[in-house]
Design a protein around this nucleic acid. Structure first.
Lengths: 299, 299
DNA sequence: GGTTGGTCATAAGCCGTGCTTATCATTGCA
DNA sequence: TGCAATGATAAGCACGGCTTATGACCAACC
């Protein structure tokens, strides 16, 4: 027993509209017998007569009328499917689930989201802010489409594109303004405030100071860069923050900002997504938007 | 270029649900390659990727999600089509357009409509009350489904079923009560009030009196049996009415009812519909309802 | 690091469906 | 009664879609 076919519904609709087998068949660009057979098949399938055939006329039965109403709705919905596909082809559509690490999100996201909204009308942007390792897991699980993180991540199933390099700056109490900038050895002797375990930014900072995680030091852990800067402001120690955070975080704090002499600490900000993602092309566009947003932010 | 198929949508839905080609294929009772091919075809048709295939998982893309929502709605609607057909198979459904002649309608319809409504839940009954000739035309045009008329109609494209025979009774002024019932000759000498031209009941009465329409007589034409009875009540003449009208029409009139000796005038009430009507089976049921209603009315 | 199991894609072959043209049956009309 | 119109039926053919068999790829696991 064969099933209902869209073709049958299309033929039916044509016959309902024309009330004439020959003309309906023409409209469907098939021969009259082909249409007759499909209609017959449809009626047998439903075990109901849809048309009343008299010598001169083909008329819908009462049930046929009801049927036709529903069929027209269905055919319209089906046509909308292909329209939907055509409209969204090659463009970002629907929903973009973006992961961002905490040391990037507050600074970069406002600009990125603004630009994406301007570029992709109607795009729904979900943001997930958490540590890199969790973002990687969520990418693997398909819970997010892409993530903005510090590279490298080096997951074999991920593809990563570098967007821009970004220096770290030293935040000291306001009264240190103008004092010589410490080098790495000097820095190691200072009370360095860092984010808690798990933040890549923490590892990057430690790595610059040549402090290995294997060799624990007494460090005050703050939950965010903002907290760290505030703590510096009241004289508890010094900290590093990425360039993009300077504007936001030092505006209302009595701290001084100092750039390191080379070698300068830095990180590479980039985007990652599953190699298998069919959004690859669109994500490259998104990456470009992020890059520009980042450039504008540091300028 | 081939078109979208319901089959493809069904396979797509299965794959979306199972996230696994093999299991989805099982669910569809086909082989895995068959499903793969149809999905591929669908994606090529839409020129969009619906699924993200990685080694371990098959996941919907964002567009696929949106697509799946719509597809599920469509498939539900399509399934409803066959449900609708099954539910209405062999039963009267939707709308019944019934024509009735004026000398039957007021007496028979209340009972008929009540019984039909009780029997066919949700049936929408349209009634058209007019002369037989117009009803026949409306049947031909497909504007009504069946008609209750006096037989015979003898139209070759119509099928007719007799429901019951019904005598005509004589309506005389109240003071004639008990007087001998006139025979046909006597009747011809009386002032006989009849409906206007076109009513079959008029022809039947004339025919009983052996007055042929070719031989015009001065007759007062009333627009309805009720009018005629009222006129009889004020002494203008006598009239004939069908048995089923007696209860309603003589209740509030000072007239006397007399039954003829044989040969008694009578008519055959029946139902007619197009021979081509697919409602034939159901209309036979309706006819049975009408017959019972008529029997109850005359009892 | 080869091997194995799992998974989806591809290939080859076959069967059935649906199309075409040709023809028939019916009916309304001249 | 014969003709024109219309839908149904028949025969034949071609293509689409299914099956089984096999390939490609990747992950996981000794």
């Amino acid at each position: 027993m064969t099933n209902l076919t869209l073709k049958q519904l299309r033929y039916f609709e044509a016959l309902a509209r024309h009330g004439h087998f020959g003309r309906a068949a023409d409209a469907c660009a098939i021969s009259q017998p082909a249409l007759s057979m499909q209609i017959k098949e449809l009626e047998e399938l439903l075990d109901t007569e849809l048309f009343e055939r008299s010598a001169r006329q083909v008329r819908l039965t009462a049930f046929g009328e009801e049927f036709a109403l529903r069929v027209r709705t269905i055919l319209r919905s089906v046509d909308e499917l292909t329209d939907l596909a055509r409209a969204s082809r090659g463009r970002l559509v629907g929903r973009l689930r973006l992961g961002v690490i905490p040391t990037i999100a507050p600074y970069l996201l406002p600009a990125v989201i603004g630009n994406l909204n301007r570029l992709y009308d109607g795009l729904e942007i979900h943001v997930r802010e958490t540590l890199t390792s969790k973002l990687v897991q969520e990418l693997a699980d398909g819970r997010i489409d892409a993530a903005i993180v510090a590279l490298p991540v080096s997951e074999p199933f991920l593809c990563e594109v570098a967007l821009f390099a970004e220096d770290f700056v030293l935040i000291r109490p306001g009264e240190d303004e103008g004092k010589p900038v410490p080098d790495r050895e000097t820095l190691r002797g200072m009370r360095l405030l860092l984010l808690e375990e798990g933040h890549c930014f923490r590892e990057q900072a430690l790595s610059y100071c040549d402090i290995h995680s294997a060799r624990p030091r007494e460090l005050l852990d703050g939950s965010s860069l903002a907290t760290l800067v505030q703590m510096v402001g009241v004289g508890i120690g010094v900290t590093l923050i990425p360039e993009m955070a300077v504007g936001v975080e030092t505006r209302c704090a009595s701290v001084s900002v100092a750039r390191f002499n080379s070698p300068r600490p830095s990180r590479t900000v980039g985007m990652i997504w599953r190699k298998t993602s069919p959004l690859a092309k669109q994500l490259l566009q998104v990456a470009e938007v992020v890059r520009q947003s980042g450039d504008a932010l540091r300028a």
